[in-house]
Design a protein around this nucleic acid. Structure first.
Lengths: 258, 258
DNA sequence: CGACGTGTTGATTCCTGTCAATACTCGTGG
DNA sequence: CCACGAGTATTGACAGGAATCAACACGTCG
C-alpha cells in the first residue's frame, strides 16, 4: 500500500502540468516567495537545485513521520497540512496558497500530512542543498524567518478561532480569509467580493474544527441572513463584506489587504 | 512584597539589579536561548544592549496593538500571550517558559497581550538595535529561525488540541506538556512525576478553550480515575504517566523525554 | 439510467457552557 | 491564634449548541 502510494507519487510528480519549467524571471510568486530577497547570483544557485513538481487533488505530498527530503514553494494551487488522532479525528493545521513555503528546513521529519487540495505545482528544492544555501545566504534566511513569523501569527489567529469562536463565527472567519486572499471585488462596489472556495466541505470542517453538517448549516444560515450569495457549493459572493467581518467576530480593522 | 522579590533576585546572582545585570557567563538559559549559537564577541554586542526587567504576576508586559519596542528572552517565570474578542472571550495563544523568546523581531506591532503569569525576569533588548544585530549575525538569526519553527510546531499541536480534542483530553494533554517541561520524577519510578501548575484555572481554561468549571471537573475526573493525585490546587502528582498520555489522545511515542 | 461522491436538511443526543451555591486558600488584622 | 474577607477553586442543576445518526438532493461519470 505504502509502496504503491510512493510509486504513484513519483510517477505523477515527474509529469508536470506545465510544458516547460518556469524561469525565475517570469515566476508568478517571485515577489513574495522565500526567494523574494535574493539577488540574481543567489537566484542562479537556487535555480540549479530547483525542480517543478505537480500533484493532483487528494495526492499526498509528504506524510506525517516521514523524513523531510524536500522543501519548496507553492507555485500554483492549494496545499493542506493536517494532523490526525489515533481514532481518525482530523484537524487541518496549515493551508498553503501560492508563494507559501512548504516543508521543514532545519528539522529532520514532518509531523503532519501535506496533501494537495487542488492541482498543485511546487517549486521544490532537495532539503540538504537548500539548507546549505540557507546558511550562507542571509537574504534567503531573512525571508524564511519573516514567512515563518507570519505563519505563526496566522496560527495564533487560528487558535483564537478554534478555541473561542462559535460555528457561525468560524465559517464567517474562513470566508473572510478567502475573500482577503483570493477574492475579487465586483466592479466598483467595495462591499461585494466574489471567489471560489478552493476546498471541499470536509476540508472546511477540518480547518474549522467542525463537522461537515455544521459547516453546511452555517453557510445556509449566512445565506439566509443575506450576508453571502451562493452559486453552487464552491462559488461565493459576499454581499456585504463589513457584515461578514462583523459576523466573524474579531471586529477586524477595516482594511484587510487583498 | 515586590521588595522581597527583588531582594530575592539580588541574592541569587552576583549583582543582578536593573543597572547591574547578570553576566551571560552564568546565565541559566544560555544553552537554549536566542543567543545560544553566539560566539563570545557576539555575546559582547548583545550584552551591550541588554537589560533585565522584572514583572509581577498579572502585570502586562506588552499590550495588543502596541508598537513593538522590546524583544528578549524569558529568564525566569512564565509569560502568557492572549488574544481577546470584542465581547471579552479570551484565548491563550502562547505560553512562554524560561529560554523562550518574547517579542516580534522584524514586525512593527504585536497583536496579542503578553502578561506575566508568575513573577518574571526578562533579558530584554530594544527592538531596533536587536534587529540590526540580527541582520549581521547569522548565528543569532539561525537560532531565532529554529525557535520560531519550534513555536510553529507547538502551535500546530495546539490547533489539534483545540479543534478536535475533548475536554478531558485537553486537560490531560496540558498536564502532559507540563510534566514534560517542568515535571520531576519521583525517585526511580519512571511512571510517576510531580510538578506545580504554574498558572491559575482561569489561565488553563484560556489555554484549552474551555471554562474554568470544565477544567475543574476534568481534573477531578482524572483524580477519580487514579491517573493523577492532587495536593492543593497547584500541586500535581502524575500517578501513571503512560495512562495520562493515553488519556491525552495523541498516543504519544513511547520515549519520554524528561 | 443508476451509482457514486458531495452537499444539504432534519431529528435527536450529549458534551460543555451557563448560572448558582459552596468550599477552599491565603493574606491581613484584631 | 483565630476571625475575617477577597480571590480562587469545586460542585451542582440546567440549558443550549454542535455532534451524531439518518434521509434526501444534486451533479458527474460510467
Amino acid at each position: 500500500m505504502s509502496r504503491h502510494m510512493f510509486a504513484d507519487r513519483l510517477e505523477r510528480s515527474t509529469a508536470p502540468t506545465l510544458e516547460a519549467p518556469i524561469k525565475c524571471a517570469n515566476c508568478p510568486i517571485a515577489e513574495r516567495a522565500v526567494c523574494a530577497y535574493c539577488e540574481p547570483p543567489e537566484l542562479v544557485e537556487l535555480d540549479q537545485i530547483k525542480s517543478y513538481k505537480s500533484f493532483e487533488p487528494g495526492q499526498e505530498i509528504v506524510g506525517a513521520g516521514e523524513e523531510s527530503v524536500m522543501v519548496g514553494s507553492v507555485v500554483e494551487g492549494v496545499v493542506k497540512l493536517t494532523k490526525t488522532l489515533v481514532d481518525g479525528r482530523r484537524q487541518m493545521v496549515g493551508l498553503l496558497f501560492p508563494s507559501d513555503f512548504i516543508g521543514r528546513a532545519m528539522r529532520p521529519t514532518v509531523e503532519y500530512d501535506a496533501v494537495a487540495a487542488t492541482k498543485v505545482v511546487l517549486c521544490a528544492f532537495p532539503k540538504s542543498p537548500f539548507e546549505r544555501l540557507l546558511k550562507r545566504t542571509p537574504h534567503l534566511e531573512q525571508r524564511l524567518l519573516e514567512m515563518t513569523l507570519d505563519e505563526l501569527d496566522a496560527a495564533r489567529e487560528w487558535l483564537l478561532l478554534l478555541g473561542r469562536k462559535t460555528a457561525k463565527e468560524k465559517v464567517a472567519s474562513f470566508l473572510c480569509i478567502l475573500a482577503a486572499r483570493t477574492g475579487e471585488f465586483e466592479g466598483a462596489d467595495a462591499g461585494r467580493k466574489h471567489f471560489q472556495i478552493p476546498i471541499s466541505r470536509e476540508d472546511m470542517a477540518d480547518y474549522l474544527g467542525l463537522t461537515i453538517e455544521t459547516v453546511s448549516r452555517q453557510i445556509t444560515a449566512l445565506r439566509k441572513d443575506g450576508v453571502i450569495e451562493i452559486d453552487g457549493p464552491r462559488r461565493i459572493v459576499v454581499s456585504d463584506l463589513a457584515e461578514l467581518m462583523e459576523t466573524a467576530g474579531d471586529d477586524a480593522e477595516g482594511g484587510i489587504i487583498p
